[in-house]
Design a protein around this nucleic acid. Structure first.
Length: 409
DNA sequence: CCGTCCCGCCAAAAA
DNA sequence: TTTTTGGCGGGACGG
């Protein structure tokens, strides 16, 4: 209960973003052998409160990456579940807007769907008794109005929006408008829409951390918008090269082989032409500041440089650089602007987190990387505290420790 | 000032 | 009841 503090010095909001959290989440579970995901372990492992795990999990579930198994327990499906989920969503979307008066924003969604149909994953070794099988819940749950506003539902709606239209970019307000136009209630036109928009930000963050989406700006204005990077209909977006996050796992730093690390959201098609490079995006806004120098000579800064391009290129170089290196962190920021770093100790190996945690403090040139590390450090700390605590309980010792003082600012 | 969006209170579902 | 899930929005952060 004592518990307190936590206010770290170099705190940055980005370190706690849902997007990063999602990346880490994926990083620790996207591996062979993973079958179930426990909310508790996940939370402590990632060093965040339970509440946040629910956010991630709900969204991932709506995308087909996870499936609820039981209380506190989810089944891991992985990226391979995405294609199917998307397909289903698309069908639903098509079906929905066909029974809809035209010339009108998609209002209502006489919903009574409930997926669950995707029940053919090879699981269930020896089904003891799969209790309730949802059986069509035809009942119009007027009671479950709550579900309507769930993050998961919103996510699906949001995605449907892209899957069904021909454009691949939607502005923030348009999206929120659509999503808000909820069932029933043709009355208010006066909603405090702003409120829900926050959810959109959450969703967009995790989706972009998975590279299904990208935050952009509407060409004309500076209005924020989202561009769908997924693989919906259009077979000819060969130019659609996105970066896929290759999160690192807690205990797998020397990424030895395992080309399997290259998870690709793209699917099922054995020979999918779409090629995606992958690096470690980590923080969605991997925007390497446009150094003032950037502009210089270029006479035509017409377009030609989209963030995406930059990112891709960055990854390219990064890959080349670390080609045969043992560490496979993603796109390091082109170590150019880096003035002379602390050059503390380069040879340090991150095998023992204890030392690492203790030494940790130098700001890494790569924002994202730094954030990630900090996250782990944080997780380790909580774990350590817990361990210590238990020890205390058991030993009942007075403990004048000096070793673990939290370094003051 | 304003766009983002983290944090966590606290109320619905589940045990 | 207690515990698990998660709406929801205040207000902190960062530009």
């Amino acid at each position: 209960m004592a518990e307190s503090g936590t206010v770290h010095y170099g705190y940055s909001r980005k370190q706690k973003s849902l997007g990063l959290l999602c990346t880490n989440f994926l990083g620790m579970y996207d591996r062979e052998g993973i079958v179930t995901v426990g909310l508790d372990e996940t939370a402590s492992q990632l060093g965040v409160e339970r509440r946040r795990i629910y956010d991630i999990v709900n969204i991932l579930e709506s995308i087909g990456v996870l499936a609820r198994k039981a209380k506190n327990q989810y089944s891991w499906i992985g990226f391979k579940g995405i294609p199917q989920a998307l397909k289903d969503l698309k069908e639903e979307a098509l079906k929905e807007n066909s029974s809809n008066p035209s010339t009108d924003v998609a209002t209502e969604v006489l919903d009574n769907e409930e997926e669950e149909k995707t029940f053919n994953l090879s699981d269930n070794p020896n089904a003891s008794f799969s209790t309730s099988s949802v059986l069509s819940v035809k009942s119009k749950n007027v009671t479950d109005q709550r579900r309507e506003k769930s993050l998961g539902q919103l996510t699906q709606k949001f995605i449907k929006l892209f899957l069904v239209s021909d454009v691949d970019t939607n502005s923030l307000d348009d999206a929120s408008r659509i999503l808000l136009g909820d069932i029933n209630d043709p009355s208010h036109v006066r909603d405090h829409s702003a409120a829900k928009v926050r959810r959109l930000y959450d969703i967009a963050n995790v989706l972009s951390s998975m590279n299904l989406l990208e935050k952009t700006h509407q060409s004309q204005n500076r209005k924020p918008a989202f561009r769908w990077l997924g693989f919906n209909g259009k077979p000819d977006n060969s130019k659609d090269v996105a970066v896929l996050a290759k999160p690192l796992s807690p205990n797998q730093f020397r990424s030895d082989r395992s080309s399997s690390g290259a998870v690709c959201a793209t699917p099922l098609s054995p020979k999918n032409p779409i090629k995606r490079t992958f690096g470690t995006d980590i923080t969605n806004n991997a925007e390497m500041k446009k150094n003032k120098v950037a502009s210089l000579v270029d006479g035509n800064r017409k377009k030609m440089k989209t963030e995406r391009d930059e990112l891709t290129e960055c990854n390219h170089t990064a890959h080349k650089q670390l080609g045969s290196k043992n560490y496979v962190f993603g796109p390091f920021e082109p170590a150019k602007v880096i003035k002379q770093e602390e050059s503390k100790d380069e040879g340090m190996r991150y095998q023992d987190w204890e030392n690492f945690a203790a030494d940790f403090q130098p700001r890494y040139q790569n924002q994202a990387l730094g954030d990630l590390f900090e996250h782990y450090v944080e997780a380790w700390k909580t774990w350590y505290n817990k361990a210590t605590q238990e020890c205390d309980d058991n030993k009942q010792q007075h403990q004048p420790r000096n070793s673990t003082g939290d370094q003051p600012p």
